[in-house]
């Protein structure tokens, strides 16, 4: 993501979107191992079907990780994500291509922070994970 000239971003303006490669079953196994979330509905089709699902579903925390990646890019090398809050509203499946989007909600020149709304979607206007981040910037315009 190119660095953002915050002085030119208006409140409510959308920031550049980021599309992620399709989520793979291998990625869900990797995420299970790396996170310690071994709930088999994420990695085992039989377990997922027994739970009433059509197949395995991605960890909600993986989608939060995508939004955290976006917030981390906004923070850059010297900033800091101070707060990240998300709501899991829709299921994400292997094969899904998620796009993370963001818009500026507020900026605080005194605290050197920006507050952004973030969401991940498979189709336009159908957010599956929505959230908000407060990012401390190294310097504000």
């Amino acid at each position: 993501m190119p660095s953002i000239d915050w002085a030119r971003v208006e409140i409510g303006q959308e920031l550049p979107p980021r599309q992620h490669p399709a989520i793979t079953k291998q990625q869900l196994v990797m995420y299970a191992g790396a996170s310690g979330d071994f709930n088999l509905i994420h990695t085992d089709v039989e377990t997922a079907r027994a739970a009433g699902l059509t197949g395995t579903i991605a960890h909600g925390m993986l989608s939060m990780g995508f939004l955290a990646q976006y917030a981390g890019e906004l923070a850059g090398d010297h900033g800091f994500v101070q707060r990240l809050k998300v709501r899991f509203s829709g299921m994400v499946f292997p094969g899904d291509v998620l796009t993370c989007r963001a818009q500026l909600l507020a900026r605080d020149a005194h605290q050197h922070t920006v507050t952004v709304q973030l969401w991940a979607e498979r189709e336009p206007d159908h957010p599956l994970t929505t959230g908000e981040a407060v990012v401390l910037l190294r310097e504000m315009p």
């Binding site: 992620h20 490669p21 990625q27 990797m30 995420y31 191992g33 790396a34 996170s35 993986l62 990780g65 995508f66 955290a68 990646q69 981390g72 890019e73 090398d77």
Partner: peptide, 15 residues
Amino acid sequence: AIRRFAAAIGDPNPL
């Protein structure tokens, strides 16, 4: 553990 966690997400941030 940090590297494996970032790799699982696919987050390439060098930090």
